[in-house]
Each structure stands twice: as structure tokens, then as C-alpha cells.
Write a protein that binds this DNA or RNA. Structure first.
Lengths: 173, 173
DNA sequence: TGGCAATTGTTCGGTTCCAAACGATATTGT
DNA sequence: ACAATATCGTTTGGAACCGAACAATTGCCA
């Protein structure tokens, strides 16, 4: 039995969490859910900011532009609608990001041969070269960010996040 | 001993992770770091989007505006510079968000009595009322999002994320 | 066949976001 | 005392971001 109050060792909490416990402790608040979700936001924001300031700044790519180019690099030619889903952005946003990437010569838009509603997107040689150069640096920085965790901890963390993702998918149906 | 290749059971991975393993498996890529960090991004984006579409849409508040108001609700009066740090946004962004919140009558700006460079920010009665009504709903939705995890899993997840946050803080010094 | 519904990418309006430049104010050093 | 330096919030310019409206194209079905 490891349950009960034994686990709320405040020395491990960040300041915000301790304050919230003190100020909202009497309300019917799910503190473990609060800590879990808000720490996901915090970690995501800091990691994104960090990666943009370090590896991505070298090529002057936004995080989103990098993501879009990464999808094309890994999967190759994509229909624009799929690209938006994979990158996790709306199709309206994708239009702007594609314009930026095309202006820099990293991607190329073309029309679908049979269905003229669709737009096919391909990475150019320059785009592929940029990613081949950039992704190892990006991944090395990811490894640094996750460096405080052991191999087992990383697996457990990724698995728990997948559980959250599946819950979110189920909630949005 | 649980190490080695035994843990890479692909049935638990999401499709993107499997494809990346197949396409980049020969490169010297840290796959566990890749999965960990990218799942943090995915979970954060989906959770943010979900919360904006559900609870936050009722009061027509953006996620960032909610965060700023939440900080003021929990901690009370803040200097603008601290508010930006707590909300995780730049001071330029905060100016715009404060303008929005002030236009709606949720916050009030005032000048510091002795140091006229500083701006003090307070929540209004209306702002406090909105948060008192909104935060329980927000937290209930957080609990739903984390509902797929057991109590111990949530604690472990939050703890691992704190480790990542501390690593990121150390990296940005 | 021909009209109606569905789908796709773009455009538009409004907000969020950052870095950099700026003006106002405060602090420091000499 | 007073010039150089630092700090703070705002403004500006450009990109990202969404939902909704839109035109073009395709599919359906009577």
C-alpha cells in the first residue's frame, strides 16, 4: 500500500503547486489531475521555446514549419489535408506555413492529377537537405531535455502520455 | 532485468512512432527521447485545444487569458513582469492579453506608488467571479483528461514532468 | 443527365505570440 | 550632481493560429 497522503511530499512540488494546495485545498479540486495536466503544458511550452531558441534558430524555422517539413521528410509526398492533421494545425494555418516554406524553397505544391481539389506537397532537395542536417541536432537536444530521466522512466512517461492522448481522442468524438 | 529490446512492443506505439522507427531506424536517433518529447507536444496541443473548445468557450476566454486570470485569482495582485513569467509568455504578449482582459472588466491596471516603471495588476470582482465559476469546470475537465490514468500513474507522470522542467531550467542558464 | 450535397484549399478577420526598438523611469558610478 | 546604465511596459512588424465564409471541384442520386 503506497496510497493515502504519504505521497504528497511538498518538497518535490514546484512552487505553484504548493501555493495552489494552500489556497484551494478546501475546495473540491482534483489536485493530481491539476498537477498532471498543468505540468504537461509547462513542459511543452518550455521545451518548444528551448528548441526554437537553440537548434531551430540556426535555420530560422518556426516550430510549426519544422514539424510540417519533418512530416514530409519522413513520409514523403502528402496531400495537404493529411499534412494539416499530422502537424496538428488547421488547414487555414497550413496554407500560411506552406507559403512560408515554399518561399524558402523547401517544399513544392502541385495539383492532384485526377482530383483537382487536392494539393500535393513534396519536399524539395533543399528541404530534404535542411532536415537531414537539422533533425540529428534536434533529436540530440531532445535527448538532452529528457536526459534527467532513466530509460525506464522515459518509457513509462511516453506510455502515460499515450494514455492521455487516447483519452483526449475519445473525448472529442 | 527489463532492459534490452524487450520493451519495444510496437503494438503500444502510435502510428507515427512506428513509421519513424522504420524510416530512421538506421540513423543514430534517440527514439525514446523522440517519443517522450513529441508525445509531450501532442498531449499539450490536444489538451489545450480540447479545453478551449469545451469549458473555456463558455466564457469566450483564450487559454492564455485564462492562465493570466488564474494566476491573479490564486496569488492576487501581481506586478506585470511577474505575471508574464508565471503565465509563461513574453511581456509584449502580456500587454495584449491584459488589454483584452481589461476591456472585459476582469482585471485592473494601476501604477506602482513608488516605482512608476512598474504596472500592478489586480483582478476585479467580475474577474474573481468568473474564475470561481470557471475553474471547477476546468479542473473537472482536467480530471476527465487524466481519467485514463490511475492515481499512482498520475503521480509518476507529474514527477517525471517535473524532472523534465528542472532539466529545461538548467539548460537555459 | 443534372441538380444538390460534400470536400478541399484559400482568404479573411481577429487574437496570440515573439523579438526588437522605443520612451519613461530608476539606479549606479564617479 | 549628473551622465551612463539598467529596467519596465508598450509599440511595432512579422509569423502563427483558428473559425467561418468562399470558390472550385467532385460525388451522389433521382
Amino acid at each position: 500500500m503506497t496510497g493515502g497522503f504519504a505521497s504528497s511530499d511538498k518538497t518535490d512540488l514546484i512552487r505553484a503547486e504548493r501555493d495552489v494546495q494552500e489556497r484551494l485545498g478546501d475546495l473540491a479540486i482534483d489536485l493530481s489531475a491539476l498537477a498532471t495536466i498543468s505540468n504537461i503544458f509547462r513542459a511543452s511550452n518550455m521545451a518548444r521555446y528551448h528548441l526554437e531558441r537553440t537548434v531551430l534558430a540556426d535555420e530560422d524555422l518556426s516550430f510549426t514549419a519544422f514539424t510540417v517539413l519533418w512530416v514530409l521528410w519522413v513520409w514523403g509526398e502528402q496531400e495537404a489535408r493529411h499534412l494539416a492533421v499530422e502537424a496538428g494545425i488547421s488547414k487555414g494555418t497550413l496554407t500560411g506555413v506552406m507559403t512560408t516554406l515554399e518561399r524558402r524553397g523547401y517544399i513544392k505544391r502541385s495539383s492532384h492529377p485526377t482530383d483537382k481539389r487536392l494539393v500535393l506537397v513534396n519536399p524539395t532537395k533543399a528541404g530534404i537537405n535542411v532536415m537531414a542536417n537539422l533533425f540529428p541536432k534536434f533529436n540530440a537536444e531532445e535527448a538532452r531535455i529528457a536526459g534527467g530521466l532513466g530509460e525506464d522512466e522515459k518509457r513509462v512517461l511516453a506510455a502515460s502520455l499515450r494514455t492521455v492522448l487516447r483519452t483526449l481522442e475519445a473525448l472529442s468524438e
